[in-house]
Amino acid sequence: MCNYTCPPKAKLTELERQYVLLTQSGLPIVAQPYHFIAERLHISVADVLAMTKDLKARGVIRRIAAVPNHYKLGYRYNGMTVWDVQDEHVQAFGQAVGRLPFVSHCYLRPRHLPRWNYNLFAMVHGKTAEQVQQYRIQIKDLLENVLQLRNDDIDQARSYQSNDILISTEILKKTGLRLKR
């Protein structure tokens, strides 16, 4: 089994671990949010800013940002589109799907034949069912020539779809992924 692991340059120092533990549940919403970190870690604000920039440059921090509640903004249709893309094309086309402005996450994942034939996953979010279907069509147009067409060799009656969309209908659990002490 292949597991996605962190590049070595992203390994954290002890001080950086303290930074993560302090900020992983969020920053205070005040004029000088980095002062809070500086006080707690007993370092200067300049050092906190330098550390933050360095963690960003190494990919540990993706960005300093706010996360909206999808539903409060009216995004009721959150769909995981899944695609059966020919292996030799999945790298180039995975990048291309990821560049579409309405795709929020795009990953290569393993197939599990015969149960699951999809290897490319792309998340889309819309305010209406029509909107997410439209996004699915746009991705399909892009992937049209590289989708895998397959039949079940054992059960000829069984045919595979080349793509699908799985809309989330209920959040059953949602907790943060946290670094433990």
Partner: peptide, 17 residues
């Protein structure tokens, strides 16, 4: 009002070990 659920650094969870 929970329109925003979080504000702060967005970490790559994999990089946190």
């Amino acid at each position: 009002n929970k329109v925003l659920t979080r504000f702060g650094p967005m970490f790559d969870a994999v990089c946190l070990g």
